[in-house]
Structure formats: structure tokens, C-alpha cells
């Protein structure tokens, strides 16, 4: 099977801030029969620079990425927005990049996950996940409702799943938007956090650690009683 030998891309901020997300992804893939390979020397896909207006600065990073991952049939990454960026900017190699959940559902077509997680979680739908990767239906479009994150989480034993009001409205992270427009960014995040808190969930989970980082920063400042966990950690819980 081609996917038994798949490349694993660990985004820069996951590497430095949330390595546990990378570790969970690694163990989860192994448990599901994929033998992930994490090439040495990988850094960043270049998205932060490009969204800030320095796409040219991202080109050497994209080339490095290509060098390291070109030989793999599938490249998996636990970050929807990095997957989108690579897919849109890396041509042939880019089309082999999958966000973790879509890889599990669309390629592996899994019907079960090893994790057991007896908590109430609120799903955080990221903009690029929804409107670029189509991980869920978008509230603006007239289309049948679906959610890949909900579908995959529902395979976890013991879990209770909910979603906030205005479930696919932006949380205000937006990469460098968060520092160029800090007031609007924080305001959007506060509103998003409140909607998550109103669900009564114990955890906020999603496929993008970047949105979670922004919301967690606000939650910590406001001492809000909620925890943050990447979806890979829930799927791999107990491994």
C-alpha cells in the first residue's frame, strides 16, 4: 500500500510550542498501519510570510519542502492551514499533502480510532479548514451539512461533542493579522471563546493549533475555565 510509507510534516509552531501534537500524530498513524517518515531538516511551509505579504520570501521554504517530501506518495500534516498553503503553492507535490483528518477519512477510510476520551469537547472549525479544505460544510453556502472533524471524533469512545454558535466564524488569529490588527483580532477571539464556553465543554479541539494558540492566549489572560487539545491528541489518547 502506498500510504504505508508516508511523509509527516511537523509545522514549525507545532515543533516548538506543541510537540505533543506531533508525537500524538506519529503514534496515531503508526497504530493505524501507516509508517510515518519525518524527514530531518524540515522547518516551515512559508505560510506566515506569504499571508503577511511576503510570498517571495516563502519560495525558498517551499523549495526546501519539495526536496524533502517529493519522494512520498502522501504527506500528512496535523495543520489544516499549512496543508492548504502547500496544496495551493506546491503544484504536484502540494496535491499529495493531506491534513491529518482528511487523510484518515478520505484516504485510509478508517472506521475506528484507538483513543478513548471521556470529556465534553467543543469543535473549533478553522477558516482554512472549512472554506479551503472543505473539512466541513460552510455556513454561507447552500450545501448539505457535514463535518469531517465531527465524524472522526464520533469514533472516539466516551466523547461528548458540541459546537459553538456561529461555528465557522473566524476566531481572529489570521497569522500576522493577529499582531497587525491586535484589537480586532483579540475582540474576535473573545467572542469566539465565549461561544465555546457557552457550550459547557471542558475542551476546545480542532485541526489547527494556530487558532487554538490564539484562543488559549485569551483564555489564559481571562482565566477562563477551559482546556485546549489538538484533535490528534484526542484520537491518539491512551496510546
Amino acid at each position: 500500500m502506498p500510504y504505508t510509507h508516508s511523509g509527516l510534516f511537523i509545522p514549525c509552531y507545532i515543533n516548538a510550542l506543541y510537540p505533543e501534537v506531533g508525537v500524538a500524530t506519529w503514534h496515531l498513524l503508526k497504530d493505524l498501519g501507516v509508517k510515518p517518515v519525518c524527514p530531518a531538516g524540515q522547518t516551515c511551509c512559508g505560510q506566515p510570510m506569504a499571508n503577511a505579504g511576503f510570498e517571495r520570501g516563502a519560495i525558498p521554504l517551499l523549495e526546501e519542502f519539495k526536496k524533502r517530501f517529493d519522494s512520498f506518495e502522501y504527506v500528512i500534516t496535523p495543520s489544516a492551514s499549512c496543508a492548504v498553503f502547500l496544496r495551493e503553492h506546491l503544484g504536484r507535490t502540494g496535491h499529495r499533502v493531506y491534513e491529518l483528518c482528511e487523510f484518515l477519512l478520505d484516504v485510509l477510510k478508517i472506521t475506528g480510532v484507538p483513543g478513548r476520551f471521556c470529556h465534553k469537547v467543543s469543535i473549533h472549525n478553522s477558516c482554512h479548514g472549512v472554506r479551503k479544505l472543505h473539512l466541513s460544510s460552510a455556513s454561507e453556502l447552500v450545501e448539505p451539512p457535514y463535518s469531517k472533524l465531527r465524524k472522526i471524533l464520533s469514533l472516539v469512545e466516551g466523547i461528548e461533542i458540541c459546537e459553538p454558535a456561529n461555528t465557522d466564524e473566524c476566531c481572529g488569529f489570521g497569522g500576522m493579522f493577529s499582531i497587525e490588527e491586535p484589537s480586532v483580532s483579540v475582540c474576535m477571539g473573545q467572542d469566539k471563546l465565549k461561544n465555546h464556553l457557552d457550550t459547557g465543554a471542558q475542551y476546545i479541539t480542532g485541526a489547527d493549533s494556530s487558532c487554538l494558540m490564539h484562543l488559549q492566549g485569551i483564555a489564559q489572560r481571562e482565566e477562563a475555565p477551559i482546556r485546549f487539545i489538538h484533535i490528534a491528541q484526542i484520537l491518539a489518547a491512551g496510546l
Binding site: A16, L17, Y18, P19, I179, S183, Q190, I218, Q220
Partner: peptide
Amino acid sequence: AWGKGRELPAFAKESFTRMQ
């Protein structure tokens, strides 16, 4: 600018690369 209303995330004691 990040610190206006948000705490900064903490760096992990050991990065994914280091663990690897």
C-alpha cells in the same frame, strides 16, 4: 501587540525535532 489581551504560548521544554 500579541500581549494586548493574550498570553504568549510557552515553548516546549523539548521540541519535536529534539525528541526525534
